[in-house]
Design a protein around this nucleic acid. Structure first.
Lengths: 163, 163
DNA sequence: TATTGTTATACTCTATAACTATA
DNA sequence: TATAGTTATAGAGTATAACAATA
């Protein structure tokens, strides 16, 4: 930051901008976190989103994707099941496995919750000047792409048979 | 998005885009949340950031800004104080009040943590195509502005005497 | 009497360790 | 013997209620 003007290498400059952008996103995340509805943990919401996106998954996979311990995911799924948002199905190929699937009620819940979370943020976006909103709209694909990259990193693959 | 070309009314179109952008940010937030270091709660980090940004504050204010109950903030501050990251000072004007101030160790911690969080995100940004990174850089002021708006909403004002 | 903060207590979330069932 | 999942138990975070000190 301080020595940006002294550096002839443009690559370093780009790296600095990436770091700046990343810090901006990080700080926004930490700040906005508190403004979201808190009727369900973010881990549960992210788990429901994963199930909705990629179909039934086993507990072990869900734990790895969310970065929680396997017993924690068992508890979380048990609670979601009691709420009616997911169901456990048996895997015909391996009777040790529980395949977890989102229910229609779970899908409805996640959509409702997503709308509520988005509205809390939209209320802030509304107050930005038009030019800034335009830059956000232009950056939306990049933000979407970041999320996809994050998901790819954590998700070892689709629920098909693996080696 | 799909029907941008068919709509004569720009106002409705803008509203839709704002909602889309807000949902994108919300979903990114939920996703990235799990990738961050977890050595300290986001509430504690946000509290340290507030103290660093606006100077010593009373417990009641900090609780309101973070949207937690006052006794929860007492506990949180007690833990931060034990870690050496904040200190309680007495308010000369009102002896009921504890003014909480960040220590040098606390400032160092929050900077280190911010860098770690930013790096986790930068690792994803690095993999975006250059054009998308450019849109992110262009949107950084807007993202920063969203955070400021959120802070203004929650923070009733600086630590000066209020009516 | 109202306000600031603390202490007591309970609930949720998540961790590790020990266990059961199946491969 | 290794793997998928569950149960038992503990610690962190946050809530409400009751309390103490000060205004």
């Amino acid at each position: 930051m301080l020595n940006r003007m002294n550096r002839p290498a443009p690559a370093a400059d780009v790296a600095t901008n990436q770091q700046d952008v990343a810090e901006t996103i990080y700080r926004l995340l930490v700040t906005l976190f508190r403004g979201l509805p808190r009727d369900m943990s973010l881990t549960s919401i992210a788990t429901l989103s994963t199930l909705e996106r990629s179909g039934p998954r086993r507990i072990t996979d869900l734990a790895a994707i969310q970065g929680v311990a396997q017993p924690s995911m068992t508890t979380l799924i048990t609670n979601l099941e009691r709420a009616g948002y997911v169901e456990r199905r048996s895997d015909p190929d391996d009777r040790r496995v529980s395949l977890v699937a989102v229910t229609p009620a779970g899908a409805t819940y996640i959509h409702t919750r997503r709308r509520a979370g988005a509205e809390a943020i939209a209320e802030l976006v509304e107050h930005l000047p038009d030019e800034e909103i335009a830059t956000l709209t232009a950056a939306a694909p990049a933000l979407h792409h970041i999320r996809e990259l994050h998901n790819q990193r954590r998700d070892p693959g689709p629920p098909v048979k693996r080696s």
